[in-house]
């Protein structure tokens, strides 16, 4: 794929959009600083706030997600991967640590108590398990020097990480258009927010690798360029 000005503008816009959403996520996080168990979303979770593990898991989830989002996106830059490999390594380390040890397990715990009943609880818990699993698989692939496998599973992992943004974006759009009842839309986006991401990335992976001759040594295959 050739690098054209148009393509660069397109990537620039994507980056700006992504930064905008990351900023939105940061403001959501800032609502809980200083640590407040009766702020924002937690205002309607007071029935669980006295469980010792719920607030701990909640705050871990909120604060680690920011690291995941910022660290995760750098991984798709060819320049960083090739010319600043140390950055790829370190931000990758942040992404994997934050996901596997913090965000995904805590997501599972708060998923158990999710709003919207069993339907959204299953959605969030399944999301947490898959996210954890995909990230671990990707690192195992890397250990076996299977770079393509590493890339593919990391794409899946990041697609799920992005659900933090897509879930809220879907909710915003659905509310603006249909004005649904609050928990109805919540149940819907609990699934829509990540399943669609996964479908899109599977199609991408299929077209990118499975569709053509796979060369295991083709390390130059990259996401963005």
């Amino acid at each position: 794929m050739k690098s054209t000005p148009l393509r660069n503008i397109f990537y620039g816009l994507i980056l700006l959009l992504y930064l905008f959403f990351c900023w939105q996520m940061t403001t959501i996080m800032l609502q809980y600083i200083p640590i407040n168990t009766d702020a924002a979303f937690l205002r309607i979770k007071q029935e669980y706030i006295n469980l010792p593990h719920y607030p701990i898991a909640f705050f871990i989830h909120v604060f680690s997600s920011i690291f995941v989002l910022f660290a995760g996106f750098t991984q798709f830059s060819k320049i960083i991967r090739q010319k600043h490999f140390w950055l790829h390594k370190y931000s990758g380390w942040i992404y994997v640590t934050a996901t596997v040890f913090l965000a995904a397990p805590s997501g599972f715990i708060i998923g158990i108590y999710a709003n919207g009943g069993i339907l959204s609880q299953v959605a969030f818990c399944l999301l947490a398990i898959l996210w954890f699993g995909f990230t671990v698989i990707s690192m195992l692939k890397l250990r076996r020097k299977d770079i393509i496998g590493h890339q593919q599973w990391m794409l899946r992992s990041f697609a799920l990480a992005l659900s933090a943004i897509t879930l809220r974006a879907w909710k915003y759009a659905l509310v603006a258009i249909f004005h649904p009842r609050p928990m109805d839309v919540y149940q819907l986006v609990a699934w829509l927010g990540w399943v669609l991401n996964l479908v899109i990335i599977e199609v991408y992976i299929y077209k990118r690798w499975t569709g053509r001759q796979t060369e295991s040594s083709n390390i130059k295959n990259t996401f963005l360029k």
Binding site: I35, N36, T37, D38, Q46, P55, I56, F59, I60, F63, S64, Y90, W93, I94, T97, A98, L102
Partner: peptide
């Protein structure tokens, strides 16, 4: 580098644990 990031997480973890009762009432 790894250590620094690790400590950041540890600090956040402890801040998160430290919250107790506050202004519900």
């Amino acid at each position: 580098m790894k250590k620094i990031i690790f400590y950041i997480f540890v600090v956040i973890f402890f801040i998160a644990c430290n919250n107790k009762k506050n202004n519900t009432e």
